[in-house]
Nucleic acid binder design. Structure first.
Lengths: 249, 249
DNA sequence: TAGTGGTCTAGACCACATT
DNA sequence: ATGTGGTCTAGACCACTAC
C-alpha cells in the first residue's frame, strides 16, 4: 500500500509548494471542521494516521504537535490525541482577559439582558463581512465576578452561522463551548481593540458606576477554525477595580 | 569522543528530569546571556553544536527550533542560525501595541521629558522586586505618531542592571535595542495591565487632550532572557484616535 | 561548488496511563 | 501486559544562499 493522499513535488502550475507535514496539518483541521472527529473525541494513533495519509509516522507527529501548540488538539502521554474542547478552566480563561486587581484570575457569571434577531447596522455588517440580506442575533449580557458587575457585553452573531439560536430558550454561561457543541464553530482567534471612554446612562446602570466615569471599551472580532468571522462584540468594563491583562512574548 | 555535557537519566536525588533537547535549549540560552554569541552573530551549525554538546544533530535541531519560535534565535535557510537582534521593524512592533484607528501600525518617535536617578517609591520597588538600597533610573518620554502626541511613558529601570545609564548624554528611540546593545539585556516577555482613567493636568498638557478626558493607562513589567525584572513602565495614552491592539490565539 | 537549514523517513527505546 | 505519546538517533535528500 503506497498510495499517498498528498503531493511531495512542486505542482506544474505555479501553485505554492506545501511540505507534507503542512498538508497533513491542514487536512486534519479540515476533517475536524467536517466533524469526522468531534470535540473531546480521540484520533487514531500516529501510525494509523500515517498509513491512512501515506506518509511516515514522524511527519504525522510533526503535524499533530503543531496543532497541539495552536490548541486545536490536546495530547496526553499514554492516553491519546484528542480534539480540544472549549471546556475546563484553562480553555475558558484563554479568551477572558479581565482580572480583578490584586486577585487571581476568575471566571465571571453571566446574566442575559437582551436577546433578539436584528437587521445589522452598517457598521456591524461591515465588521462581520455580511451580505445585504444577512441578519444578526443580538445578545446582551452582564458579567459578574464575585456577584459584582464588571462587564457589559453586546454580542452580534451572524444568523447564517447560528441557525435557530434565536429560538433557544436557555443559554449557558460558557458561550464559546456552546458555539462548539451546538453549531460546530470552534473559536480559534480573536482580535481586541481597546479604548477608554466615559460611562453613559446604560453603562452606569449596569456596571454600578456614575455617568461620566472613565471605563474601558473594547471590541472583539472572533474567527472560527476555518477562518470564518463568527462574532463581533462591543464590551464596556468597569476599570476601577479590574484591568485587562496582556502577556506578550 | 563520546563525552556528553548532559544527563539522559533521572538524577538520583529528586531533581526534575529534563529531556536532552530541553537541556540544550537552556544551555544555549545561558551561553547567549553570557555573551558567547552576541546579538546578530551566527552560531556554529547543527552538527558542530551536536558534537560539542555530545547529542545528535536532531536533538540540537529541536532545541534551536524551539528557541526560534520564542524569538531568541533567527534561522535562515542556506545561511545560518543567528542570535536575534531587537532591530528591524518586525522586532520593534512586537512590543508596541498602540495603533491609530483605521491605519496600519506605525512606529512612533520619542521625545525625552525627564531623565534622572531616583530613590524608588515603595510601589516601584515592590513591582521591580528591589532591595532597600537599590536606586532606579527614571525616564519620561512623549511618543508621537505622525507628529501627534499619543503616549506618555514613565519608565523605571533598576540602576544595578543599567550601570552608568544615567550619565549617558544621548538615548535612541528604540530603547529595547539599546538595552540589548549596551547592557546585554534582551527583552523577552512583558505583562501589561490596562485601565481607563481621566486625564490630569500633566496628561492633558502632554497628550493635547482636556483635563478629565478618558484616557488609557497601562503598566508594563518587562523581563529579560534570564528572567530578571528589568523595567517597569506607567503609560498614559490618548484613546480618541488610537487603540491598544491584542491578538489572541 | 560548498555550506547551511528544511524535510522526510525508519527504528529503538522510554514514560505514562489503563486494563 | 498493552497501547499510547515522548525522546533520541542516524541518514538520505532537498532548497536556498553565497561565493
Amino acid at each position: 500500500m503506497k498510495g499517498s493522499k498528498f503531493d511531495n513535488k512542486m505542482s506544474p502550475s505555479g501553485l505554492a509548494f506545501q511540505p507534507l507535514y503542512k498538508q497533513v496539518e491542514e487536512h486534519v483541521t479540515q476533517l475536524i471542521v467536517e466533524q469526522r472527529w468531534k470535540p473531546g473525541e480521540m484520533l487514531p494513533n500516529e501510525f494509523q494516521l500515517a498509513e491512512e495519509f501515506g506518509v511516515s509516522q514522524g511527519t504525522v507527529r510533526k503535524a499533530l504537535n503543531t496543532l497541539t501548540q495552536s490548541k486545536v488538539l490536546t495530547r496526553r502521554q499514554g492516553v491519546g490525541t484528542f480534539v480540544s474542547e472549549h471546556t475546563g478552566n484553562q480553555a475558558l480563561y484563554r479568551f477572558f482577559p479581565l482580572v480583578e486587581d490584586n486577585q487571581a484570575p476568575q471566571l465571571p457569571e453571566a446574566e442575559i439582558i437582551a436577546f433578539e434577531l436584528q437587521t445589522p447596522t452598517k457598521n456591524i455588517a461591515e465588521q462581520l463581512n455580511l451580505g445585504a440580506d444577512d441578519k444578526v442575533i443580538f445578545l446582551s449580557r452582564k458579567r459578574l465576578i464575585n456577584q459584582v458587575a464588571c462587564l457589559l457585553e453586546d454580542i452580534y452573531l451572524p444568523e447564517k452561522y447560528f441557525p435557530g439560536l434565536h429560538e433557544m430558550p436557555e443559554l449557558p454561561h460558557t458561550l464559546y463551548h456552546f458555539y462548539q457543541l451546538n453549531f460546530n464553530l470552534t473559536v480559534h482567534k480573536t482580535t481586541d481593540r481597546i479604548k477608554a471612554t466615559s460611562a453613559n446612562q446604560r453603562d452606569a446602570e449596569n456596571l454600578e458606576v456614575k455617568v461620566g466615569d472613565p471605563i474601558l471599551m473594547f471590541t472583539r472580532l472572533t474567527r472560527a477554525l476555518d477562518g470564518k468571522l463568527i462574532e463581533f462584540r462591543i464590551n464596556h468594563c468597569r476599570s476601577d477595580n479590574y484591568h485587562y491583562l496582556v502577556d506578550l512574548d
